[in-house]
Each structure stands twice: as C-alpha cells, then as structure tokens.
C-alpha cells in the first residue's frame, strides 16, 4: 500500500457538511433505551420483608426495616416494611430487582431515571415507606 499525504482530508471535509455527533445536553437529550438501569424504587405494599435485597446488595446500599404490625380481622398478621436506599453507594447493578421474590409483581424495580447528581449527600438518602 503506497503512502498518501493527507489521507484523512476527504473525510475531514465531508464532515464540514454533516450535523454534529454530539447533543447539547441538558438542552437536548438523547432518549435512553428501554430497560436502562436507573434508580431502584420500592413499593412497600408489595414487600414481603424477606430482606434478600439487603443481603445481596454488593454496595450495602439497602436497609429494610419493619414499620408496623397489624392483626387483620381474619387473624393474619400483616407486617409493613420500609426501605432506606443510600443512592450515593448504589452501583445500579439491579441485583435487588433480580433477587426480589415478591409475587406476582416484584417489590423493588429500577426505573429509567439517570440524572442522579446532587450537591448534598443527604438528598441521596431515599426512604420508601
């Protein structure tokens, strides 16, 4: 293959007439794909209190606490749990969602929200109850 000076120039000139490859975030946004691993969200109505998410979380970002205990008219004991999520530690691995055994719907799920930056660390402590 012979050497050719300015081999890149045709490509460079072609790009003068193309639109930019980048977008002007935050004024313009790319759409995120379906199934993006964003923020974990817990639904206390569905939680069965097995603490599997707390046990498996590799970042130790989840705390499950029992909030209340009530005896139902049919004699069954209904317990309600809360989840404290330390989002500053969360690695967004989705292991909590994967391991959650609640049926028919999982109690912990990751949404597609990705703009997690905050000035205050306290804002990243989220309690679901």
């Amino acid at each position: 293959m012979s050497l050719r000076l300015g081999a890149m120039l045709p490509e460079v000139f072609r790009h003068l007439f193309k639109r930019p490859a980048t977008v002007l975030y935050p004024f313009e946004r790319n759409t995120v794909p379906r199934g993006l691993r964003g923020r974990p969200v817990m639904d206390p109505d569905k939680c069965i209190g097995c603490r599997m998410c707390e046990r498996d979380c590799p970042a130790e970002a989840i705390e499950i606490k029992q909030e209340s205990e009530a005896t139902m008219p049919d004699g069954k004991v209904k317990k309600r749990y809360s989840m404290t999520l330390y989002l500053d530690r969360c690695a967004h691995c989705a292991q909590c969602e994967e391991i959650c055994p609640a049926k028919p719907d999982k109690a912990v799920k990751l949404n597609e929200y990705f703009e997690e930056a905050a000035f205050d660390r306290g804002a990243l402590k989220i309690v679901y109850k």
């Binding site: 890149m8 490509e11 460079v12 490859a21 995120v32 794909p33 199934g35 993006l36 691993r37 690695a91 967004h92 691995c93 989705a94 990751l110």
Partner: peptide, 29 residues
Amino acid sequence: DTFFMYTWRDREVVMDLLEMVSGNRVNYG
C-alpha cells in the same frame, strides 16, 4: 487528535448497543 475524535465517535455506536442490551454503558452486569 483527528483520528482520536473519529474513532471515539464510532465507539458511541457500540456503546449504545451495549447500553441497549445490558442497561448500562459501562459495568454491564
């Protein structure tokens, strides 16, 4: 650096594919 810009622009194609498949751009899990 022109070479750097072009390769990294094309890299975005594969990064988007990885994000679509796994749900994350890095640390695919």
